[in-house]
Simulated scan of single mutants.
Amino acid sequence: MTDVLLCVGNSMMGDDGAGPLLADMCRQQPRGNWRVIDGGSAPENDIVAIRELRPARLLIVDATDMGLNPGEIRLIDPQDIAEQFLMTTHNMPLSYLVDQLREDVQQVWFLGIQPDIVGFSYPMTPAIRNAVVTLYASLEDRDAPGRFPAL
């Protein structure tokens, strides 16, 4: 079965570029057996492609304001995304995406990376870049994303 890594974010918005950076790293040197999709700032546009793949696992990675220190990574229960009012910069809430895919995907993981600076034309901060490198290194182990601390 296929595992899909959906990287979400906008590389022109500082730390919100964490997802696209991870997608680029995976394209240049794949880790594990993840099928990588760069969802950009409108990941809902990839719902059909993900449905067609019918992945056993979907890992969504996004910069998410969780009130933590910059660069901290947390596993968030997809059902809690809307309830906890987690802030992202995207057009539609990620809870909509998860709801649309629930019947087609056996397991959904959501990993949030706490951003520091999200603003147009800002560079990515070192803490977020390091978090992306840590997450990238973990992808070799298919179950590693589920081992990050829960929010």
Results as ranks from 00 to 15, higher is better:
M1S: 15
M1R: 15
M1E: 12
L5F: 02
G9D: 04
G9A: 10
N10V: 05
S11W: 11
M12G: 10
M12V: 14
M13F: 05
M13K: 02
G14N: 02
G17P: 03
P20Y: 00
P20K: 03
L21Q: 03
L22A: 06
M25P: 00
C26P: 07
Q29K: 10
P30W: 07
R31N: 07
N33G: 14
V36H: 06
V36A: 04
V36S: 06
D38W: 01
G39A: 08
G39N: 05
G39W: 00
S41W: 07
S41I: 09
S41A: 15
P43K: 04
P43H: 08
P43L: 06
E44K: 06
N45T: 14
D46C: 15
D46V: 10
I47C: 05
I50E: 01
R51V: 08
E52L: 14
E52W: 09
L53A: 14
L53M: 15
P55G: 07
R57S: 08
L59M: 09
I60L: 06
A63F: 03
T64F: 07
T64E: 07
D65S: 11
D65K: 11
D65T: 12
G67L: 03
L68G: 05
P70E: 04
P70G: 05
E72D: 14
E72P: 06
E72A: 09
R74N: 08
L75D: 04
L75A: 09
I76G: 00
I76R: 03
D77F: 12
D77P: 06
P78N: 08
P78L: 07
P78T: 06
Q79S: 13
D80H: 11
D80V: 08
I81F: 08
I81V: 11
A82S: 15
A82H: 12
E83R: 15
Q84K: 15
Q84Y: 11
Q84D: 15
Q84V: 10
Q84F: 10
F85K: 15
M87A: 11
M87V: 12
T89V: 11
N91Q: 15
N91I: 13
P93Y: 04
L94C: 01
S95F: 04
Y96N: 11
V98E: 00
D99F: 04
L101D: 03
L101P: 00
R102F: 06
E103F: 11
V105R: 01
Q106E: 15
Q107S: 13
Q107A: 13
Q107T: 15
F110D: 01
L111C: 00
G112M: 04
I113F: 01
P115V: 06
D116V: 09
I117G: 03
I117L: 13
V118E: 03
G119C: 11
G119F: 10
S121F: 12
T125N: 03
T125A: 01
T125W: 03
P126Q: 08
A127Q: 14
A127H: 12
I128Y: 04
I128M: 07
I128N: 01
R129S: 13
R129G: 08
T134W: 09
L135W: 05
A137F: 10
L139D: 01
L139N: 01
L139E: 04
E140S: 10
E140C: 08
E140P: 05
D141E: 12
D141K: 09
R142A: 13
R142N: 13
D143K: 08
G146E: 05
R147M: 11
R147W: 11
R147P: 05
F148H: 02
